[in-house]
């Protein structure tokens, strides 16, 4: 989760940074793009082989890895593009822990299901 302060969007002109320079490097972490998602990737962690391909292909660095192992998704920044699910090379051997379906270890489910 973001620890940085989000840039102010309402400063009067005298207080803006000249030339539009951005002084706080890496503040895009404060931009919560996870709300853009209409489909959410879900992983059956038990059946995941930790091949890390999802981590390589994710264009938003939203695969959370700890000590060399995938532990989950950064849902604040995952836009739900589905590349991880598409590229996941591993099929489940028993129904997916979250969706109950056969198919990949990472599957996409409607975000709306999580909002209720």
């Amino acid at each position: 989760m973001a620890t940085k302060e989000a840039p102010r969007l309402d400063l009067p002109w005298k207080e803006a940074n000249p030339g539009g320079i951005v002084l706080d490097a890496g503040n895009s972490v404060t931009y919560i793009t996870g709300t853009w998602r209409t489909l959410r990737p879900v992983r059956d962690l038990e059946q995941c082989t930790q091949c890390l391909i999802c981590w390589i292909v994710c264009p938003d660095a939203a695969i959370t890895v700890k000590d060399g192992k995938v532990v989950g998704f950064d849902y604040d920044h995952c836009k739900g593009c589905g590349i991880c699910a598409q590229q996941c090379p591993v099929n489940v051997k028993k129904p997916h822990a979250i969706t109950g379906e056969m198919g990949k270890v990472i599957q996409m489910v409607p975000e709306a299901d999580f909002q209720k």
């Binding site: 009067p12 002109w13 000249p18 539009g20 320079i21 490097a25």
Partner: peptide, 21 residues
């Protein structure tokens, strides 16, 4: 002191930056 220059400047700030200029 890392900074970003020449970044996308949207309708919410471009005018203010031109006013400064």
């Amino acid at each position: 002191h890392p900074v970003t220059m020449g970044a996308w400047d949207f309708t919410d700030y471009y005018f203010e930056h031109k006013r400064q200029q």
